[in-house]
Computed example of a mutant assay.
Amino acid sequence: MAYIVKRLLTMIPVLLFLSMMVFSLIHLIPGDPAQIILGQDATPSAVAALRAQMGLNQPLFMQYVQWMGKLLHGNFGTSLIDHEAVMKLIGQRLPVTVELAIGTLIVALLIAFPLGILAAVYRGKWADFVALFTSTIGLAVPPFWIGIIFLLLFTVKVHLFQSSGYVPIWQNPGQNLSTMILPMVATGIREAAVLLRMLRSSLMEVVDQDFVRTARAKGLRGFVVIVGHALPNALIPVVTTAGIQIAGLLGGLVITEQIFSLPGFGQLLVQSVFSRDYTTVQGAAMVAALIVVVVNLIVDLVYGFVDPRIRLTGGRS
């Protein structure tokens, strides 16, 4: 518990620094939101009036202080383009990306773990070759290309899945799965390739250690030795990689969401950047930063469950 409290306290300066970075960088993007909203034919006086109304004529420091004040009260502001609460827009889009990210990770684990274990059990044999070939293909082929192939094959030719019409899973699980399964698999193949290589290399390193050789000397079967003894000791780098993948997927699924017409968080962020919707970009970026920090905390906590030798008391032993 003391470790969790300490980590939560360290999140405060991290998020404060990230807020300053987000606020500063978004104002470096060329373009005037007031000019974009009113159009190119707007008069300078109209643009100036709208800038004053939006508070864009104040010094950046004052704008940051006001924004942070609202942020601390849970108010992420109002979209400059949609004129809706930023939290409402994020609340509508974020569940789509979170579902896609979780489904992608599940697909990646279902592919990576069996192949990684087989590669370690049958080291240098056919299973190892299949695992290496699969990971190489997964790393070499872009997810968007796989997504396009899936769309052409399973929606245009076979009509097995839907290519659009996303609905939340709690409203219609069948339609949701029909819409989400293809993007999950398309992106999961790439993430599986990364996890597979990490798991394979980590297992290969562990199986050469003394405690594994001792287990084999006792007459235990190879599969039992790998799963029961080597695998728990090889999971730490895999857990770390999986945590990094989850955090990266929040912003890295933009192309997948575009291909499969998914109204996700990544699309909201990109559209807001191009439309110079400062408040939405700032709010979305802060939510993404918070999620990344929380994921890192969860990964650290998982370490203690995966390997009991790790003690989460502010240090590791």
Rank of each mutant, 00 (worst) to 15 (best):
A2P: 06
S275I: 02
I149Q: 04
S275W: 00
G147V: 00
L203K: 06
I29H: 12
G188I: 03
A34H: 07
I90W: 00
D82H: 13
R276C: 06
F305L: 11
R309C: 12
A288R: 02
G251Q: 01
L151H: 09
R221E: 08
L235N: 00
R123P: 07
V225F: 00
V156M: 07
F161P: 07
R276K: 13
F144E: 07
F23N: 05
A285R: 01
G315D: 10
I29G: 09
Q267G: 11
R316C: 12
G116T: 04
I149S: 11
V224D: 13
T280R: 14
G39D: 01
V156A: 15
P95S: 07
V96E: 10
S201D: 01
L100H: 06
P59T: 07
K88A: 14
R93G: 15
I81K: 12
F76I: 14
T155D: 11
E191N: 15
A193H: 09
A49V: 11
V141P: 05
P44W: 03
M180Q: 09
F161E: 14
S317N: 14
S19P: 03
M1E: 13
T97I: 00
L195I: 08
S135I: 04
V270A: 07
I255Q: 05
K6W: 05
G188F: 00
I246M: 11
G248H: 01
L18Y: 01
L235Q: 05
P237S: 06
A215T: 03
V254Y: 05
L132G: 13
L312E: 05
N172Q: 11
A49H: 14
L152E: 10
G264S: 13
V212K: 08
G124K: 11
N233Y: 05
I298D: 13
L8Q: 04
S317D: 13
G74T: 02
A193K: 04
V96P: 03
F154T: 07
S79P: 05
F129A: 10
T240I: 07
W145S: 15
K6C: 08
M286Q: 00
A48R: 09
R221T: 08
P59N: 04
E99D: 08
S317A: 09
V167W: 01
D128K: 11
V130G: 15
A48I: 06
V227R: 15
Y303D: 08
T136D: 14
A119Q: 03
K70A: 02
Q258E: 10
M62T: 15
R213M: 12
M180F: 12
L56W: 00
T187E: 15
Q53V: 10
G315V: 15
T134L: 04
E99W: 08
G39Q: 02
K88R: 15
V5P: 04
